[in-house]
């Protein structure tokens, strides 16, 4: 990765106070001239365009009336708590599940009727490692290449191995690889048939930070080549590396847009407090009018709420004490998402 903003080397969980840097957002886009302008919402530049998508399991609503627009060449983050319907949505997009309701297209094909055509052009990376553990690295890639009927199978597999840097370990069983390598192999396998759209379901769960960073560099490189990527994740630092993102909870889409837009539209006010004893202070703050979230981040405390006046009224007595340093900051994505999730639960 050529341009890494310094903040990304910080703790992954530290929410970022400022808006998303422009340089990052534009990254990779210059590399592929063929990419349509990602800011355009014209139907032809939408790789995924679905609306009203719903799915029930045994009467339980897993995805509720979901609309999603993903533009070509975009890295689209898909966030939400466990069980919020992320995996179900991804499975519906690639034809693994039949939606109970809704309509739309994926790569220009109907998501209900033309799943076979979609499957040919989509690379789907499952949440769990789903290559054959008892097949070697090469055999796995070879199998995938055969399934997609690739003409120059040998060369394609050789190239993939070389890119992976696994050429000398190609005879090793896939099951013996470490988590990070498994994930890279899985990505290589689902990229083998040169799909136009990548659907990645929590690709970096349980992978160490270095491997995660490498993985994301690779995703940005692919996006630069014009490939559209829909990626679900729990990690906020990963969310911030997406061009745009959607937040889903209890099967319902709660927010959509760039990081800056999502933060801005959330209407959350956050104060950062630096204090000697953040836990004591936290205990006193919790439950006061207007204070909806009190979250410690190491030596600092984030105090958030949606009603600015009420919040500031509640913290005023503490600020007057002068023991701690209070700073108004822009809320981080995590603050925003937790807030949204709480709100959504109240509505469900």
């Amino acid at each position: 990765m050529q341009q890494r903003s310094p903040k990304q080397s910080k703790e992954p969980n530290l929410p970022l106070p400022q808006a998303y840097p422009e340089g990052h957002k534009g990254e990779g886009r210059g590399e592929g001239a063929a990419i349509a302008n990602p800011t355009s919402n014209h139907p032809s530049s939408l790789v995924i365009n679905v609306e009203g998508l719903s799915k029930r399991f045994n009467g339980l609503l897993a995805v509720n009336n979901l609309a999603l627009q993903v533009r070509r060449g975009e890295i689209y983050g898909f966030l939400g708590p466990n069980g919020s319907g992320k995996t179900t949505t991804i499975r519906m997009l690639c034809g693994l599940l039949t939606p109970d309701g809704g309509r739309g297209t994926c790569l220009g094909y109907d998501v209900i009727r033309e799943t076979a055509l979609i499957k040919r052009q989509v690379g789907y990376m499952t949440q769990r490692f789903s290559l054959y553990e008892d097949l070697s690295i090469r055999e796995n890639l070879d199998f995938t290449a055969r399934i997609y009927g690739m003409a120059n199978r040998r060369r394609v597999v050789d190239q993939a191995l070389e890119r992976l840097g696994l050429g000398d370990r190609q005879k090793q069983l896939a099951g013996n690889l470490s988590g990070g390598w498994k994930q890279r192999l899985a990505l290589a396998a689902c990229m083998l048939h040169e799909p136009k759209l990548l659907l990645l379901d929590e690709p970096t769960a349980g992978v160490d930070p270095k491997a995660r960073r490498d993985f994301w560099d690779e995703i940005h490189r692919l996006a630069g080549e014009g490939i559209t990527v829909l990626v679900s994740t729990h990690y906020m630092d990963e969310a911030e590396r997406c061009h745009r993102l959607a937040y889903i909870a209890y099967g319902t889409l709660l927010a959509q847009g760039t990081v800056a837009e999502v933060v801005e539209n959330s209407g959350i006010v956050t104060w950062m407090v630096e204090c000697a004893d953040v836990y004591a202070l936290g205990a006193q703050l919790r439950g006061r009018a207007g204070i909806e979230q009190v979250v410690p981040f190491g030596n600092v405390l984030h105090v958030s709420g949606t009603d600015r006046a009420l919040l500031e009224q509640s913290i005023a007595p503490f600020r007057e004490l002068g023991e701690c340093r209070w700073t108004a900051i822009q809320p981080g994505l995590e603050d925003v998402f937790i807030q949204m999730m709480e709100g959504a639960r109240d509505n469900v």
Binding site: R120, Y124, S130
Partner: peptide
């Protein structure tokens, strides 16, 4: 199986 079903 999930992987297999996602292929053509």
């Amino acid at each position: 199986m999930e992987n297999l079903l996602a292929t053509p």
